[in-house]
């Protein structure tokens, strides 16, 4: 008996060593590109394309100085911030009220709108871009922050609706009803009870939306050009010359561009699991 349980413990230990080894291998594969980007960003231009690749080198911060000294990068960072914040606010203003309706009311047409909301996520970008280019020309908002912000609603609308629905639904209806009985209007009950209680979830939605706006590429590539250039467009076009790519500056710019989103993802990751499963797995 004793021997058997000893064997069992050994087997379990052996099993968990295997599990940790497999996980570690995959974790290294997952993180290696980010690690390599950091390494390359600390090399000189010629070290970055040395054959064979240099693993031992003199680290330099000059690439970061170079990138941060460029007007283009700072402008792109500012454009990305503006479009990101604008996109989040607009998507929340449009999407969250409907998320609330999905969580609280039964009425005709609700399911149809819900289907269309899902379809916003699946719209092929080209179908939106060609008509929008013409409309934006007429409205004189081509190559502007506003135009890109409007288009970016499509990126986040489904996310905002489905996630805010989950977070609104997790506030017990009884609390809201109690506030109404105490003399609050429906709006008052919402503002004083439901909104504060669902705030952490909504902040997660906002952070995720910001992340997707920040990383959005195809709308930024087609709807903006000279006046507005967000970071992904800037990165894809600036350091890539006809003959050569400045990999070390590009890596430094890439690291600077993903720093905010990494911080945001770490902040949001706790609520992410609940949100990503749309409450189905509560």
């Amino acid at each position: 008996m004793g021997k058997m349980s000893q064997n069992r413990t050994k087997k379990i230990q052996g099993g968990s060593i295997l599990k940790y080894s497999i996980l570690t291998v995959f974790l290294i594969l997952t993180l290696f590109p980010i690690f390599w980007m950091v390494i390359q960003s600390l090399k000189t231009i010629s070290d970055a394309i040395a054959i064979p690749p240099k693993l031992i080198f003199h680290p330099t911060l000059s690439n970061y100085q170079n990138v941060l000294g460029k007007m283009g990068f700072i402008a792109a960072f500012r454009d990305s911030l503006l479009v990101g914040f604008g996109g989040v606010v607009l998507a929340l203003l449009v999407g969250a009220p409907f998320g609330y309706c999905l969580a609280r009311f039964r009425y005709r047409g609700k399911e149809d709108v819900a289907f269309f909301v899902l379809s916003t996520r699946m719209m092929p970008p080209i179908v939106v871009i060609i008509p929008l280019l013409q409309v934006f020309h007429c409205l004189k908002i081509i190559d502007s922050h506003l135009g890109l912000i409007i288009a970016s609603i499509l990126v986040n609308l489904a996310l905002v609706v489905w996630l805010s629905r989950v977070f609104f639904a997790s506030v017990p209806l009884e609390l809201e009803e109690a506030a109404t009985l105490d003399g609050c209007s429906h709006l008052g009950a919402f503002m004083r009870v439901t909104l504060p209680l669902s705030a952490p979830g909504l902040v997660t939605v906002a952070i995720l939306s910001f992340l997707f706006c920040w990383n959005e590429f195809i709308f930024a590539l087609t709807l903006t050009s000279f006046n507005v250039k967000t970071l992904p467009v800037y990165l894809a076009t600036t350091f890539v010359g006809y003959y050569a790519v400045d990999w070390s500056s590009l890596s430094a710019a890439g690291i600077l561009a993903i720093l905010p989103t990494i911080v945001f993802l770490l902040l949001a990751q706790k609520h992410l699991v609940k949100g990503l499963t749309f409450g189905a797995l509560d």
């Binding site: 590109p33 990165l235 894809a236 590009l250 890439g254 561009a257």
Partner: peptide, 18 residues
């Protein structure tokens, strides 16, 4: 494991290309 989600696809593409 979730860190790649924060990396802009354009940055991911350029880095992997390198």
């Amino acid at each position: 494991f979730i860190l790649p989600l924060a990396v802009a696809p354009v940055v991911a593409g350029l880095t992997w290309n390198m």
